[in-house]
Write a protein that binds this DNA or RNA. Structure first.
Lengths: 203, 203
DNA sequence: TAGGATTTCCTATAACTGTTAGGCAACTGG
DNA sequence: CCAGTTGCCTAACAGTTATAGGAAATCCTA
């Protein structure tokens, strides 16, 4: 079956680690090759190019994130789902800022031409859907009914993602109170709004 | 006073337009030089390098954004401030996605060494503070008192920024209801939470 | 144990971007 | 009209992405 050595999975895992250490912008063919002790053209045996590499990292990391959140939600044993879900995402982002960046920074190509698109975009889309389904499970845990499900998912995702992004960018580092305190308050207010949405109380 | 031609302001304004047309990633020395009908080294007369260019675009765009939000808030004539504020930001982001990206994508250098930092970082910090002050004005319009001001600003900024980011990334494009509808609902829920925060009702 | 097939990895090379150095040319003010 | 100032240029180099083609290592089979 040929000579053993690197394979696509090992390359992408190394790229994810590289993102955490030097930032997602440092995930390039040449620095990754240097880190793997290999010449740059070698990597083209495992990836189709630079955008495939970054997209594959995004897909890989989105899967890791879904593993983390679903694990935390399952460990909660039937109780509240919001706090385990949100806390798992924030823990993930703080422990692995480069990985979380990969989650965010990926753009959908303007012209998603399947012939030119790298093979990893399908993986990224599937992994994104996995995370979306977990968010849906959280709001269903509140008993939110069909017409409001999408709304609740968007509200929750926006708030969690927005808070973590700003926190990671350092926006909350130069003022009191500490970010931990306001984070828990944010979750409490979000919980209240979600419970209110579940009851269908509108106006 | 020497030969007329480009100046720093014109270069940065052109770079902002370039960001909207081709994305913030396309804001590079060489692409910008081509667009301006000039050779790449020429731009080094106006900027110190690529990071200075992008940071200057961020500062420039943050000022434009602050102009837009403060204008919308002033036009509201003493009424509600949240809706004009949030709507102005979303309009800005949808009209100029590359510019909004510049707002977001800028990282603070890990070691902010003042000797190596480009001259534009101070501008970017000042422009960022201008936007933060406008957010503060919104929550003060609700009568939020001192210990909760920071919390309210963080909550509001996270939600608005998160929603716009996900919407711009296309996350809300493939499900019903349309994003406009849930956006207004988000603002209504945020309004309710801010009014509740102002009354000091906790737990 | 000898092929053959498969796969990894290499060197060589080309194009493009960021950057520095040094010089020519054009405009302004005295 | 001359000097200072400024804008822009060519030349050159390092680093990155990418392609082409070939050499070596390993596995499977005869």
């Amino acid at each position: 079956m040929g000579r053993p050595g690197l394979n696509r999975a090992a390359v992408i895992a190394a790229a994810a680690d590289l993102a955490d250490e030097l930032g997602f912008d440092a995930v390039t063919i040449s620095v990754l090759a240097r880190r793997l002790g290999v010449r740059s053209p070698t990597l083209y045996s495992h990836i189709t190019g630079a955008v495939d590499l970054r997209t594959a990292v995004t897909a890989y990391v989105l899967d890791e994130l879904a593993d983390a959140t679903s694990g935390a939600m399952a460990a909660g044993e039937g109780g509240d789902l919001l706090v385990p879900f949100a806390e798992a995402i924030r823990d993930f982002a703080r422990r692995s800022p480069g990985r979380y960046d990969a989650t965010t920074r990926q753009r959908v190509p303007r012209a998603p031409d399947p012939s030119t698109a790298p093979p990893s975009v399908d993986d990224a889309i599937a992994a994104g859907r996995r995370n979306a389904d977990l968010a849906l499970a959280v709001v269903r845990g509140y008993g939110v009914a069909e017409p409001d499900e999408t709304y609740a998912v968007r509200l929750m995702s926006s708030l969690i993602h927005g808070y973590i992004t700003l926190e990671l960018a350092g926006s909350f580092a130069h003022s009191e109170p500490p970010s931990d305190a306001t984070w828990h308050e944010v979750l409490a207010d979000l919980d209240r709004t979600l419970r209110r949405t579940a009851t269908g109380r509108r106006h």
